[in-house]
C-alpha cells in the first residue's frame, strides 16, 4: 500500500486522525483514547496488516507526555508511525497495546518506568529497570538528580 492509500485507510478507521507525510515515514497523530481502536484496526485489517511493532518511544514534549509507535507490516512492507499525546501531564494515562502486539508488554513497562505514563489494562504494570521505590521518572525533562554525571 502506498502512502495515499494508507492515509485514506487510516482516515476511514479514525476520521479525527491527523495524517501527514514525514521525510521518512507516514505519521498519524491521534488522540490518546483513540489509539487502541485504531491500532486494532490497523493490525486486524487484511490490507494494512501492521503485525510488527518495532519501536515504542516515550516522549516528553515539555508540556505534555506522549508515545510514538513505529509499525511495519511484515508481508506488505509498508511502515507507519503513530503518535499520541496524553492530555494530562500530572496523571498521564494510555491504553495498553499488549493485546495487539505482545512486545509492548516490556516496552510499555519501560515507558512507565522512565516517563511515568500509566497503561490501562496492562497485565503487569511495574517498573522494569529502576527499583520499585525510585522517586521520579528519569527521562522526563524536569527530572533532576543531584548525582547527574552529564550536565
Amino acid at each position: 500500500m502506498n502512502n495515499e492509500q494508507l492515509t485514506a485507510k487510516i482516515l476511514s478507521f479514525e476520521p479525527s486522525a491527523e495524517v501527514k507525510e514525514g521525510h521518512q515515514y507516514l505519521t498519524a497523530t491521534v488522540a490518546s483514547d483513540k489509539v487502541h481502536a485504531l491500532a486494532k484496526n490497523l493490525r486486524g485489517s487484511k490490507d494494512t496488516n501492521f503485525d510488527y511493532l518495532f519501536c515504542l518511544t516515550g516522549m516528553d514534549y515539555g508540556d505534555s507526555l506522549g508515545v510514538i509507535y513505529h509499525l511495519e507490516s511484515t508481508n506488505l512492507k509498508h511502515q507507519l508511525v503513530i503518535k499520541t499525546v496524553c492530555p494530562d501531564k500530572e496523571k498521564p494515562v494510555l491504553d495498553t497495546l499488549c493485546d495487539i502486539w505482545r512486545t509492548t508488554e516490556f516496552l510499555e513497562r519501560e515507558v512507565f518506568d522512565l516517563f511515568g505514563i500509566n497503561f490501562n489494562n496492562h497485565p503487569d504494570m511495574r517498573r522494569i529497570f529502576l527499583e520499585e521505590d525510585w522517586v521520579g521518572h528519569p527521562l522526563r525533562k524536569d527530572y533532576s538528580d543531584n548525582n547527574i554525571i552529564v550536565k
Partner: peptide, 15 residues
C-alpha cells in the same frame, strides 16, 4: 532532544 535506542535483546527477552 530525545534519543531512543531500540535494542534487539530487550524484545527478544520478552518472549
Amino acid at each position: 532532544y530525545r534519543i531512543k535506542l531500540r535494542s534487539p535483546n530487550f524484545s527478544n527477552l520478552s518472549a
